[in-house]
Amino acid sequence: MNGGDPNGRLDELDAVVLGNVREMWQAIDPVPRDLLGLIDVALDLAGPGAEFLRASTRQELVAVRGGERAELITFDGATTTLMVNITANADGTVRIDGWLTPPVSRQVDLRMTTGTVSVTSDDGGRFAFDGVARGLAQLHVHVGGGVTTPSIVL
Rank of each mutant, 00 (worst) to 15 (best):
G3E: 11
D5M: 04
P6C: 04
P6V: 00
L10C: 05
L10V: 03
D11G: 15
E12P: 09
D14I: 01
A15P: 10
V16C: 05
V16Y: 09
L18M: 14
N20R: 12
N20P: 00
E23K: 15
I28G: 02
I28L: 13
D29E: 11
V31H: 07
R33G: 06
D34R: 15
L36A: 15
L36M: 09
L36I: 03
D40E: 15
V41Y: 07
L45H: 09
A50V: 12
A55D: 04
S56L: 05
T57E: 15
Q59C: 05
E60S: 10
E60D: 13
G66A: 10
G67A: 12
E68W: 02
E68S: 10
R69W: 00
L72Q: 10
T74R: 15
T79V: 08
T79D: 08
T81I: 08
M83L: 07
V84N: 02
N85P: 00
N85Y: 04
I86T: 07
A88T: 10
N89H: 07
D91R: 14
G92H: 13
G98A: 10
W99F: 03
L100H: 04
V104A: 02
V104R: 02
S105P: 15
S105V: 06
S105N: 08
L110Q: 00
R111E: 00
M112P: 03
T113R: 14
T113M: 14
T116D: 14
T116Y: 09
S121H: 06
S121V: 06
R126F: 09
A128K: 02
F129S: 00
V132S: 01
A133S: 15
H142A: 11
V147M: 10
T148E: 09
S151L: 08
